[in-house]
Each structure stands twice: as C-alpha cells, then as structure tokens.
Design a protein around this nucleic acid. Structure first.
Length: 424
RNA sequence: GGAGAAAUGGCAGAGUGGUCGAUUGCGGCAGUCUUGAAAACUGUUGAACCGUGAGGUUCCUGGGGUUCGAAUCCCUAUUUCUCCGCCA
C-alpha cells in the first residue's frame, strides 16, 4: 500500500510513476483518496473537540461528586447525553471514511521506480546483462523430462499417484541433487551475511495480508480450511512477516535473512509447454533472500542482491541473462524488479529462475515495519527479496545443458555437496 | 480433547472505577567522572492521528457492553501458560 502522506505531498510524481505500470484510473482514484482524506481530517478535528469536551465534563463530575455537590453533578451528567449521541455519529462516519480510503488505496499498485522501462508485455522487458555461452548439444540430446526418466531421477507419474500433477517424486541422485543445491545455496547466502531462518511453511491470515498475498491472490494459495492456515507460496511470506509490527533499530539495517522452504502454488490457469516437466510445479523448493533496508540504501542493495544471484548462476556455469521488467510485466507490489533467466538448451528457451525486487515501503506500510531515524521519528523501512534460487528450473537447465553421450556432468561447485560428479 | 489460570510499554512486572498513558526495575539514549572503558551518579526514553504551534484525540490482546467517567466491572473471540489425556 502506498503511503497516504506521500501521495498527498507528491501527487504528480506518484501519477507519473504509476503511468509506467499502465495503471489507468490512477488520477481519479488518487483524487478521490485525497478528497476523502481532507474530509476525514476535518471530521477528526470536530470529533476530537467533542471528545475533549466530554472528557472535561467527566472530570468535573468527578470533582463535584467528591465535593459533595450532588445536584450540580447531576446537571453536568445530563449534558453528556447529547454529546454521546453526536460522538457515536462522528465515530461511525470517521470509520466509514477510513474504510473507503483504505479500500481505494489497496487498489493502487506500487509506483514503479523512474528507472523502470515502459511497456506492456514480457517482450518489452529490457535485457540488461547476458553471460555465458549457450551450449550446443549432441544430436540425440533430450529435454529434462526425458532425462529424468532415462536416469531415474524424478518420477512425475508417481507424484500424480500420490498427490497429483505438479508434485514430482525425486529419487536417488535426483533427490541428492536437490539436497545438494539447497545446501549450496544456503551456505553461499550465509557466507554473504544472510541469517538463516527456518520458518513455518504455513501462515495465518494476518501474515497473508502483511505481504499482500491476501486478499488478491487467495486462489493461488493452498488453504487449510479447518485451521484457516495457508501453505506458503514462497518463504518471503513467513520471513518478511517476522518484521510485521516491529520497530527495528536503525543501526541494525540492513537486516539480511535467508530461508529454504518448500513452496506451494495452485497455479490455477496454467497450461501447455509452460507446465511440462519441471517448468511449473505445485510444490517446489526455493532458497529465498530477504532484506529490510534503510530507504536511502534500498536501490544500492537491490543491485547487490542481483549481483549475488548472478554470482550463483556463474558458479553453476549456467548461461543466464538479467531482465529489467517493464511496467506492464511487474508485480503489483514491486517498484523495480530484475528477473534472472537461465538458458535451457534442450527446450531452446529462457527459464525464469529468480526474481529480485525492491518493494520500497509498499510492503512495510502494510506490515508496519519501521525504524527510528536520527531525529527519533519512526519511518517505514524498505523491503526487498529475491530467489536465490528456485530449484526446479535450475535442475532442468543443469540436466539439459550438461548432458553428454556418457552422462550428465555436475558443475564443480556442487560436487562436494552431491558426492558425485556425473550422473550415469 | 478435558480442567484451571493469564494477556499491561523493547523486556520484566505493579496497578481492581476519577488525581493512570500508566509505579518500579532492566534495557536504550545523553551527560558527569575517567587517558579510554567499566562501575557509580544525573537526566531522558511507548505508538498512531489532527494541528504551523500551544495543544488535543486515540491506544493497557481483538470486538461488544455497563458508566458522567474503564487498564480496572460484564459479555465475547483469540492467544499463551499449567495440569491431565494422546503422541513424533
């Protein structure tokens, strides 16, 4: 949620930034918000005065009673009846106005950074960096869904039997490769100063609202109805919610957390080649990095996180590219997002493996995650997160790109974790 | 799942109808002392909203109620703890 004060003071800038996201009704919504805000403030002033008066009378009654002036006290009491009625009316109207403002405000996406390119579709994303050489495969090379069968690494059919499509069963070296990647990613993140967190993988409603999955994306999460809990779609949800309703120390910024969790996504509406094999799953593993940052440092930190993720891909010897998402392709909450994609040699396409975003104060406004600045004033911190990394598509690319006639080569950095350097 | 108790500021913990936005301790911050630090001492220290300001309003888990007046009384929801049962 955008900050009301900020909109009030920087309306033109906010409008300009929102136009990058092609958000249509920005002007009319913001005008309505500001109008209602003015009305709300006036009403609060009136209401506060009324309450002050009532408080005065209550105090007087107390004093009169103590002094034994019963009659006068009764007289004063009588006066409050009327005030009370008015008070109730004011409170109701105030609450209505606040609700209206809130429901308008939650419709407004985060205002993109001015660095975000315009555009509407993924084609308009800007390639800012590309690294590595796309491998040329031998004649009989296969896509990963054939390789996983050939080497008995992943059983998709078995997953269907046990749970359903999109819940693969990893076996033998396939399972070991998963564990190796998770450990490798966690070790790297820890070395980079991220504190490892092992959060719950279900969250309550408040947490869902805190990071913005609720109410909009309710249908994308698995819901445990009997206890009203949601399976997390990403570790971002439980980890960021650690800082809900928290005032952190300015000196502690930036706070760096990482977490491995399984992630659960219903992916309603997906179909076709996008869902083949490991391309899109209902359950997958991911190591997430999260930072709570000082507002002045957040963009610097975004670049640092992007570099960090790129470093992982480089070590894994995967050809990758970095996209700066255009306004139309960005998520609702993001102010600037980099997508990292790896080249899948057998599918001949780029696969998104990480998304690194600066949310500025959009999430922290909802979360009420603040810090005290040098003047003792609380202000909202900025939040950022990124995948580092999501496993399935990394596995897909590793298998496809490194296949040879005699087996699949494991990149050197992973060998200490897998215990084997070749899948044969 | 059954029985009981509790929920107060960063933490601990007072407070049972008006003088309570809340005693006190710890922690934090600033200062004195010190070459520096520690200790000691002194001061300061919750949040949100309205207001240029003075100041005002709201908040003692959430919601509702009683009352001129509620942290305090009543109802309700949630959570936590203890005991019992079950159990990785």
């Amino acid at each position: 949620m955008l900050q009301l004060n900020y909109i009030r003071e920087n309306k033109d800038e906010v409008l300009k930034r929102l136009s990058i996201k092609n958000f249509k009704d920005a002007e009319s919504i913001l005008n309505a918000v500001l109008e209602k805000d003015t009305a709300r403030r006036n009403m609060q002033k009136d209401s506060d005065n009324l309450k002050a008066e009532a408080n005065q009378i209550a105090k007087q009654v107390g004093e009169l009673m103590k002094a034994g002036k019963k009659e006068e006290a009764e007289h004063a009491k009588a006066k409050t009846g009327e005030l009370k009625l008015k008070e109730k009316k004011f409170d109701e109207q105030l609450k209505n106005l606040e609700d209206e403002i809130h429901s308008l405000l939650v419709q407004v996406p985060n205002a993109p950074s001015l660095k975000v390119p315009g555009g509407k579709t993924p084609e308009d994303n800007e390639v800012v960096f590309e690294h590595g050489v796309k491998p040329t495969l031998y004649a009989n090379a296969k896509p990963h869904w054939d390789l996983t069968t050939k080497y008995d690494l992943i059983d998709f059919e078995l997953g269907v039997k046990i749970a359903g499509a999109g819940f693969p069963v990893y076996k033998g070296k396939g399972a070991r490769l998963q564990r190796a990647l998770i450990n490798y990613f966690l070790d790297k993140a820890t070395a980079q100063g991220y504190l490892e967190i092992q959060p719950p993988i279900v969250v309550n409603e408040d947490s869902g609202y805190g990071t913005g999955q609720l109410p909009d994306k309710e249908g994308q999460m698995y819901h445990v109805g009997i206890d009203n809990l949601y399976l997390i779609p990403t570790a971002e949800v439980p980890v960021t919610n650690i800082y809900r309703d928290v005032i952190v120390k300015e000196n502690d910024l930036p706070i760096k957390n990482c977490a491995y969790t399984p992630c659960f996504r219903r992916e309603a509406g997906s179909y076709g080649k996008d869902v083949r094999g490991l391309n899109r799953l209902h359950q997958f593993d991911k190591v997430e990095i999260v930072q709570i940052a000082h507002p002045e440092k957040s963009y610097e930190i975004l670049e640092e996180m992007r570099e960090y993720v790129a470093g992982l891909l480089k070590e894994l010897e995967l050809p990758y590219r970095v996209l700066k998402l255009c306004g139309g392709d960005m998520s609702f909450a993001s102010a600037l997002t980099y997508d990292m994609e790896v080249w899948s040699a057998a599918q001949q396409r780029w696969l998104e493996v990480s998304s690194v975003s600066n949310f500025e104060a959009f999430q922290t406004n909802r979360l009420k995650c603040r810090f005290k600045d040098a003047n003792g004033k609380s202000q909202l911190a900025h939040s950022l997160n990124g995948s580092a990394l999501a496993l399935p598509r990394i596995v897909a690319a590793l298998l496809e790109n490194n296949q040879t006639e005699i087996g699949i080569k494991i990149p050197a950095v992973l060998v200490p974790y897998t215990g084997f350097d070749m899948i044969v």
